[in-house]
Write a protein that binds this DNA or RNA. Sequence first.
DNA 1: CTATTGACTACCG
DNA 2: TCGGTAGCCAATA
Length: 110
Amino acid sequence: MAKKTQHFYDNVYAVARQIPYGRVTSYGAIARYLGAARSARMVGYAMTNSHGKDVPAHRVVNRKGLLTGKHHFQGTNLMQQLLESEGLTVIDNQIQDFDTVFWDPSVALD
DNA sequence: CTATTGACTACCG
DNA sequence: TCGGTAGCCAATA
């Protein structure tokens, strides 16, 4: 099974699964919630390993609501369609009303 | 052990 | 929120 060193990844997956439907969060927000505010890159990096898990990676975007990770999805616009399918509006790889749909774990789980 | 990398963020102009 | 650069951190080779 998973090693102890992956506990950071597991935390990322755990938080990502808790993202409500129709909401999104940023890598930095998750990282900060985990106590590793400077490890935002690791959060995204962990998502790469999220394959095979029920982690809604499409709900995790960068701080500006930009779909930087859509590149890693199967389709070219799969990530965007997934978000739109949840009632969000995405234009030019950027989530509209990002501030409104933003979900902060450190606040929601508080 | 060191070097490389990456789904980031902050800062500067 | 326009672009380019620097800094950070953890995993991988």
